[in-house]
Write a protein that binds this DNA or RNA. Structure first.
Lengths: 112, 112
DNA sequence: CTCTTATGCATAAGAGTTTTAGGTATATAT
DNA sequence: ATATATACCTAAAACTCTTATGCATAAGAG
């Protein structure tokens, strides 16, 4: 139950998509958001999340902004312009991949 | 175009699903079949396929049967009983994962 | 007042899966 | 003769994630 393993490669797209919706988010918030909207199905581990955020930042897809709340530090990430474009690309790639997988899994539905 | 990278973890499920449909297949046949039904979208590399087949066999999910056709050797794989059960499990896991991803990607469709 | 849980960041070692790049061999088409 | 298709295989590298840590503050439970 819950906590199904991530299919490797989808984490970045998940992050980008959430940032596209929420404008700006911090790491911990992302883990909670994913847990919430998937009803606990998917748990993003911090060991995967933080390196992924750093990489997306290094690639110029995210901007960072530090903020102190209740004496605790938060690193808010938001999409750059390049990041917004790239998000659209990766989303359509993922959607295409999902369609492809459905074709394989459900060969009867030749609705593609 | 085409040749999108595999989301890691889905290859085994693809193999199992194809064998569930076709009863018995050999490696090269699997690569061609995937290319055909995905219209060239997905190309299974042999470097991934053959080790995966060997592993599934070692796990007792597949049985092998050698056959010589036109002086060329083919290794036909088919699901064991255990493999059939496991195929059903992995398919529902993958379907659940796809539903989860759709929830994230398409938050408007709260049809889940 | 101390201990646990929640919040918030981070990195390193290991495991797992795939790509890339080779290798062998036969059959068929150019 | 040479290239392409068929048919198998493996090893090294790349990539992504899990697991296991570490640090620090805030809030709640006992």
């Amino acid at each position: 139950m819950g906590n199904s393993k991530l299919y490797k490669g989808s984490l970045n797209t998940i992050i980008l998509k959430l940032l596209e919706e929420s404008d700006k988010m911090y790491g911990y918030e992302i883990t909670q958001k994913v847990k919430e909207i998937t009803k606990g199905e998917l748990n993003i581990t911090e060991g995967a999340l933080y390196p992924a955020l750093h990489k997306l930042e290094a690639e110029g897809l995210l901007d960072v902004e530090m903020q102190k709340v209740d004496n605790r530090l938060r690193k808010y990430y938001k999409l750059t312009e390049k990041g917004t474009t790239e998000t659209a690309n990766r989303l359509s790639e993922l959607e295409e991949y999902i369609r492809t997988m459905q074709t394989i899994i459900n060969p009867n539905w030749s609705i593609n």
